[in-house]
Design a protein around this nucleic acid. Structure first.
Lengths: 243, 243
DNA sequence: CGGCCTCTTGAGACAGTTCAACCTATGTGG
DNA sequence: CCACATAGGTTGAACTGTCTCAAGAGGCCG
């Protein structure tokens, strides 16, 4: 049985109040528990009819590889996030995903989704909301790369992850545990790892954030927010719920 | 009554065969027809509880504006596409949208969606698919900006629009009608209009494509595909349907 | 006819890349 | 518990794709 504070339930409950029947249906999604070792590939671009996962523990990342070997990270997934929802619905998966840390996840099949949608339409809307929120994050990453400086990009993603981690109770007041390497950040921000390193130093020298020892520690959150022009409205996680 | 060749039906039918009951429900979505003049704003970032639209005729574009006035276009919408689906589900809209040409669209309210989902779960899955396809396009635009050269970016978007227009019957063998300015392209590709202009010239001089007089005309499609490393799998519009 | 978009081209500046070297943790096998 | 391997992080110097600013040309509409 799914505990009421499971990250996914916590996230969806920000959107709509789900009746207990829907919650039980959601619990059924957690039947097939899987574990993956750090670095292992979970979803593979180009493969047909893949399944999806709900991440329960650890960080993952979804990405696309270019023919020349360069890679673009699309997003990082934290507990409560879907992993590979698009590859569940598409004929062939349009992206790959791998475990950043050791992770635990629940396998979801297309049948589970069809079944749940027909029995709980409110849940269908909640899942569409979660998928739309994922899209909103990708959109913000697009703005990041397209129209912000390297410094702003880094500041922005640090603030986004903070807000997302808070929603599932994984962020403290001063910062959070942060398992990403500078290569991960570079591939998300459309930069090189060398340049990310220089920007990290810059933000440290400005006494805005420290990124050290697998931790992000905010020294001047207001300053960071101003620098990145961060507005978390796209995460749609504040304010009153849908009636 | 909705004609069976409406762009939206045509698009969704690529994914699943919808029973006639679902098609009638879908037709109900087209009750409230609206028209917008070229240049007018249809969705506004920051506004609460906006409605969404299904585009029937013309081109639109969705975008986000930065505090410094620079703008990032997220995607262009063509007939059959949703417009502002995220602003329908979110507390406040995370993006804006405007009409590129004069357009015709049908207004969709949140109640329509909830109602349709509870009566036609298969339709819910089809809508989730369409939303996921929109996300896949944004992801590809992210890869475009993050990891491709200006030349590749432009080639890629021209090929994407060709495939998308083909799906709704708006592309000829040699090219298609193209209402975008170089400013639109610049804002989508994360470049300046000046640089887009130089790249357009480059592709013309290489005898790959002509972009002139509001038309895209392919001269060497294979060459363009190779240049951009274009693989349309992310559009999920080829191959057998979902059973 | 004049005004305003849109497109075009040039020259200099700069943010971020590339390549290369070196440093520092952390873990592993002997 | 040391020796070594390896992944990740740090820094410098030269290079380049794209931007910025600037000025002008073409075409459409009132």
């Amino acid at each position: 049985m799914l505990s009421p504070t499971s990250p996914l339930v916590r996230k969806l409950s920000t959107f709509v109040a789900l009746p207990s029947g829907d919650l039980e249906l959601l619990a059924g999604f957690h039947r097939r528990r899987r574990t993956f070792m750090s670095g292992s590939e979970i979803i593979s671009e180009g493969e047909k009819r893949q399944c999806a996962y709900i991440l329960a523990k650890g960080w993952a990342c979804s990405f696309k590889i270019q023919p020349d070997g360069r890679r673009q990270v699309v997003d990082f997934q934290i507990p409560g996030d879907f992993l590979g929802l698009r590859s569940l619905l598409f004929r062939t998966s349009d992206h790959s995903a791998e475990a950043v840390t050791d992770i635990e996840a629940s396998e979801v099949l297309i049948g589970d989704v069809l079944d749940a949608f027909s029995r709980a339409p409110r849940l269908a809307t909640a899942v569409l909301w979660a998928a739309s929120r994922d899209e909103a994050m990708v959109v913000e990453h697009l703005v990041n790369i397209g129209r912000r400086s390297a410094e702003q990009r880094l500041a922005h993603i640090l603030l986004e992850m903070d807000a997302r981690l808070k929603l599932v109770g994984l962020s403290d007041t001063d910062g959070y545990a942060f398992p990403l390497t500078q290569f991960h950040l570079a591939d998300l921000l459309g930069l090189t790892a060398v340049h990310v390193n220089r920007i990290i130093r810059l933000l440290r020298e400005k006494n805005l954030v420290h990124i050290q020892h697998r931790r992000v520690k905010f020294l001047n959150r207001e300053g960071l927010i101003a620098l990145a022009a961060f507005d978390g409205a796209y995460l749609d996680q504040d304010g009153p719920m849908l009636p």
